[in-house]
């Protein structure tokens, strides 16, 4: 059993609506990140995967709020409850303990600042000690960029280079945890592969623990040790990469896997697709949130109190019929 570095317990995050109501984007979520692993969280738009990232970074702004739960960081300083920290204490966590790479690298860089100044800005904000210049060169090199890049402006860089700069920035304060939210979605396949490779190597060389958020199961399976599947604000399945891909237990995970088109997909073949849409998260959901769209539903699903069923070694599925369905497919 490896050691956990981050634990999320019973997290509930709400986005408020104009009419006074709210959308519960994350519903009693429990997940832990193990030291040195890459945990890929996969889900479709609106499933809450990015909201989890923002909740961990405490970037949920008023009037939206984290309604309940705990997020605990376990590191050399002992346990820190992130949700209880004040702004100053938070600043010591952000970027130095947990940092983040965003999807739109173009938007996180200041267009009128040289790359090196953006690094210096970051170092000053987090009062990093030491020689800034060396540090800039070090992290640009780590992210696979030449040191010449430091004198350039963002518009002189390609999309892939900008994403590398944002990875370099995220790593520059030596965090233990990196949250990567769709870091390659806007990139072409060739560059995507390079960046994913890079991240995989950095994880080992810098001893990082990574939460990797993506909508693409093939991207997830390229980088992850474990994969978690999000649906309607809940983690419906989590397990080791190969287990989730080879033996998905949740009907949603199964459909998701069947809807992926690869080169070996036969032309014009009927792809498994999901009819309907996810449930309205502004209303209370009783029972399984996938019920309406599930091909394997039974009446009991609606009255079932959700809990993860262990279907294999470290493989959990939030489905009443998970075991039975897995056995029937074997």
């Amino acid at each position: 059993m490896s050691e956990d570095i981050l634990t999320v317990k019973n997290l509930e995050t709400d986005y408020s609506l104009d009419n006074g109501g709210f959308v519960r984007a994350i519903r009693s979520l429990n997940v832990e990140l193990q030291k040195g692993e890459t945990l890929a969280l996969v889900g479709e738009s609106g499933s809450g995967k990015s909201t989890l990232a923002l909740s961990i970074m405490r970037l949920i702004d008023k009037p939206n709020k984290i309604a309940d739960g705990e997020i605990i960081l376990h590191d050399s300083d002992g346990d820190t409850s992130i949700l209880e920290l004040g702004e100053n204490a938070l600043r010591r966590i952000r970027w130095k303990k947990i940092s983040m790479v965003f999807q739109s690298a173009m938007n996180i860089l200041n267009p009128v600042m040289r790359i090196e100044d953006q690094f210096i800005d970051t170092f000053e904000a987090h009062s990093m000690p030491g020689d800034y210049s060396d540090r800039i060169d070090k992290y640009l090199t780590i992210a696979g960029l030449g040191t010449k890049v430091r004198r350039l402006y963002p518009h002189q860089l390609s999309g892939g280079m900008k994403q590398r700069v944002s990875i370099a920035l995220a790593l520059s304060c030596e965090p233990e945890i990196l949250i990567a939210d769709e870091p390659t979605t806007a990139l072409d396949v060739v560059v995507q592969r390079e960046i994913l490779f890079e991240l995989k190597q950095l994880k080992t060389s810098l001893n990082l623990s990574i939460i990797f958020i993506t909508h693409d199961l093939s991207v997830a399976s390229a980088v992850a040790d474990r994969i978690g599947i999000f649906y309607a604000g809940r983690l419906v399945e989590i397990g080791r990469k190969n287990d989730v891909i080879a033996k998905p237990g949740h009907p949603y995970a199964k459909l998701l896997l069947g809807s992926i088109v690869t080169l070996s997909t036969e032309r014009g073949k009927n792809l498994s697709s999901l009819e309907g849409s996810p449930p309205d998260l502004s209303k209370e959901i009783i029972g399984c949130s996938f019920y309406d769209r599930c091909p394997s539903r039974v009446k009991q699903c609606l009255s079932y109190d959700l809990y993860p069923v262990e279907v294999g070694d470290n493989h959990y599925v939030e489905c009443l019929r998970a075991k039975e369905l897995l056995e029937s497919t074997v």
Binding site: V189, V190, Q192, S218, A222, I245, T262
Partner: peptide
Amino acid sequence: DILIKSMLEVGGFKTEEPLAKIDFS
């Protein structure tokens, strides 16, 4: 060839071998 080898499959990278870097600059 590089385009195809760069594709990801469900399960991971299509190939772990290093590919030529594409530079259109």
